[in-house]
Amino acid sequence: MSANLWFALVGAGLIALAAFTFFVQTHLLRRIFAFNIMGSGVFLIMVGMAQHLRQTDPVPQALVLTGIVVAVSATALALLIFRRFYALSAAVTLTQDNDTLGDSYEQEPRQ
């Protein structure tokens, strides 16, 4: 087994772990961790599998570089929205009463 294939398998493990976490954790911050690690698992599979039995492949490496940058901006964005949400609601999870807009919903125009 080559190193490439081994790390692709590790990537699969990361994805499974992160998926499990995503299902059982409702804490928004923990779900951001799960995204990041799941994404890393996908990146490992992308590079590891493509390079197995072949030479170093610059294409998936370039794609993953793009993916990493997209992932960090997604993380930053999710954190920003989460923090704003937290500042307004003091909640760290999305609960049922946020799920539907509910009876008490009236538009709150901002100042």
Binding site: A78, F85, S89, N98, E108, R110
Partner: peptide, 24 residues
Amino acid sequence: ILSANRQTLAAGLRYLYMALLGSI
């Protein structure tokens, strides 16, 4: 989330999380 009130932020977060999961 343009209006940035509690409901739209919750909706936007839910949307963002599911969309990111979909992207992965």
